[in-house]
Design a protein around this nucleic acid. Structure first.
Lengths: 207, 207
DNA sequence: GCAAATTAATGATTTATTCAAG
DNA sequence: CTTGAATAAATCATTAATTTGC
């Protein structure tokens, strides 16, 4: 029994997931009618009111913004670096997940909500850059592109942590002859950002 | 001048965004060679080592999992409710964000990484439901679908918070009616991945 | 407005589990 | 049943964010 009725809305996991998906796909400040639709949809999963939806978007937006701002406040970009390097999509292999409750049916132009473009990373641009171009350091060993190709993630640990390697017999050391070097280790300038990297206790140094 | 060398890796915003995108699209436990690729790619944006990538995925996965678990621990599901109701896509209008650095070029079957399929919401099922079927409340005013159709989100506040209406000048009138796109190719997946046992030899990149 | 004190996030380590081979 | 490999859970530690007193 809910002895403590709890005065505030407690989103169910489903509600949260749906709200997050909506946010992710661009919903930011739903108008009242959108809020109504969302609310009534979400009410299937549990008690919820329009104000909860309203507040949720309000808060979530603010918190995402603040997170972004935090990140942007570090100007760790090299001067000669182009803004973004396109990421090869082998690194972006995604399962294209379609959770049951997030089916995108083909549009049926129902008069629903379709606006708020939310221009992707636009926010980034809109944020006030609050950090001055701090000085960069010596740029030591940056890239970790050693030639060895390993199969398991834990292999890294062996390379990285001596003791780890010690307790690991001659297993995965198998030099899998897969040299897949898709893209160049553009360790060109490599800047640094937060300050030097002193591998604290784990002597890393990727070969 | 970094008098305090800082012992740990401090991801740049770009690195973070890329890692998150990769996670979002399904990367969970990259194997050693994947880690190498990722590392060398990310090193473009700042100092980084393989172990950082390894740890990042380890931690991120664990923390997402724990977040989910926490959420699931509230069984606010109605008994007669079917697991998931498909979400009408007018509620999912998303801009299809393609940040410059996240271009999905056409696949060129490079031997890179393409595995770890991760089966959708599997995690949800795998999580131990640690909360007993607590009583749900009287389900009083559940849905907030009142007939009134309002245009601005702040309208809700007027309905909801009397004082709000009072102090609200002529604010939110402007809603940009942009009809946007459809839905995201990638959905927020909560999947776990192949991890734990099973694959005898780790996820070898059997493309 | 600052700067110490507090709190929250999150990178890095360590310990426990799990599965399979032998 | 034992042991090794791999990962998940738990924990530690440091950095960044907030709060608080002056």
């Amino acid at each position: 029994m809910p002895q403590v009725p709890s005065t505030r809305w407690c989103p169910t996991p489903e509600q949260l997931m749906i709200l997050e998906e909506m946010y992710r796909t661009g919903v930011r400040t739903p108008n009242a009618s959108q809020i109504q639709q969302i609310t009534s949809h979400l009410s299937y999963y549990g008690k919820i009111e329009g104000k909860n939806v309203f507040y949720w978007f309000q808060n979530h937006k603010a918190r995402e913004r603040q997170k972004l701002r935090r990140r942007l406040s570090k100007p760790n970009m090299q001067p000669n670096m182009q803004p973004f390097l396109p990421l090869p999509d082998h690194l972006l292999y995604g399962p294209q997940i379609h959770p049951p409750f997030l089916h995108h049916h083909h549009h049926h132009g129902a008069g629903g909500l379709h606006e708020q473009r939310s221009e992707g990373l636009d926010l980034l641009r809109k944020l006030e850059i609050e950090c001055p171009p701090q000085g960069e350091e010596g740029s030591s060993s940056t890239s970790a592109s050693s030639g060895t190709s390993l199969r398991c993630s834990c292999e890294w640990m062996k390379m990285v942590d001596p003791s780890f390697g010690e307790r690991t017999p001659p297993c995965c050391g198998i030099s899998t002859p897969r040299t897949l070097e898709l893209f160049p280790t553009t360790s060109t300038g490599l800047k640094d950002e937060c300050s030097t990297s002193k591998s604290s206790s784990c002597s890393a140094s990727t070969s």
